[in-house]
């Protein structure tokens, strides 16, 4: 689509972002991953402006959601704060990388991250899995073990494999800064699979961390001129409005079917991102 006035473009981009925020909140996948493909493939916008607008919208949506989860008592604030060292470092590195990496390469990496998102959104998770039965020495020293509200009172859990979790969080940060996304999927992977935290603790702590990670990258983007106000305005307002509405609709729609549909859309976008990047159209 190629609207010829700023007003028309803002309306189209704003509506698309609203839809992305809505579906992102309802599926729990976040709207960030579809914003960049929408802007680059759909509107022919330079990928640097696209990732800039996307990253600020990630801050907006994650901040509201994080507050709600902290209230429920699942978030492990110590684990989150410690791992934010890794994600912030990674995000700053990733954001600086955008200046030296070819935009087409960014598009290809984006495509593969989309494919991974589509895959994880389809695979079953949250099933009863034993959490680690021992605490790593580092986790003990950092006093990271915690409890979360269970059906019959608080349940305790241990934290293991901090070094590998920390390294994976660094990767999540780099992807966040390079692609302008929250990279919640990789953050959950680090805590759920590597550090053996309960799934609900992993997802809520990931949400807690996303805003800080995104702020680290966004600071660099601002200085590099990737945050174009005319474009970031409809994206940020649209995604924010969509996610607020989506959070209210959450209970009324079959999330499972929606996730399937969303995963399909993401997979198609992934292939298009990779194809367009390789053929030099991004």
């Amino acid at each position: 689509m190629n609207p010829d006035s700023v007003l028309a473009l803002s309306l189209y981009v704003g509506s698309g972002s609203l839809l992305a925020g809505l579906i992102g909140a309802m599926t729990g996948l976040g709207g960030g991953v579809v914003i960049v493909p929408m802007l680059t493939l759909g509107f022919g916008i330079d990928i640097r402006y696209a990732i800039g607008a996307s990253l600020v919208s990630v801050i907006a949506t994650s901040s509201g959601a994080a507050a709600a989860y902290v209230r429920e008592g699942f978030t492990n604030i110590r684990v989150g704060m410690f791992l934010e060292i890794a994600t912030s470092l990674g995000a700053i590195l990733g954001a600086h990388l955008t200046a030296v990496v070819n935009p087409a390469a960014i598009g290809v990496v984006f495509g593969f991250v989309l494919l991974h998102s589509a895959y994880t959104s389809l695979s079953a998770h949250g099933a009863a899995r034993e959490t680690g039965d021992t605490t790593g020495r580092l986790a003990g020293w950092l006093r990271m073990d915690g409890t979360y509200p269970g059906p019959d009172g608080p349940r305790s859990y241990h934290v293991s494999s901090i070094p590998s979790g920390f390294a994976l969080m660094g990767v999540a940060g780099v992807l966040s800064g390079l692609l302008g996304i929250g990279s919640g999927a990789v953050k959950v992977l680090a805590m759920d699979r590597a550090m053996k935290l309960p799934f609900k603790v992993s997802t809520t702590t990931s949400n807690f961390m996303i805003g800080v990670t995104a702020a680290a990258g966004a600071g660099v983007f601002l200085g590099r001129g990737y945050i174009e106000p005319g474009l970031a305005m409809p994206v940020m307002l649209g995604v924010l409005a969509g996610s607020l509405i989506g959070a209210r609709l959450l209970t009324k729609m079959p999330a499972r079917k929606l996730r399937l549909l969303f995963a399909g859309v993401i997979a198609v976008l992934a292939v298009e991102m990779i194809y367009n990047s390789v053929t030099g159209r991004i």
């Binding site: 600020v56 801050i59 800080v212 601002l222 970031a232």
Partner: peptide, 8 residues
Amino acid sequence: LVLLIATP
């Protein structure tokens, strides 16, 4: 947008 970045 700077206010937004400053929030976290």
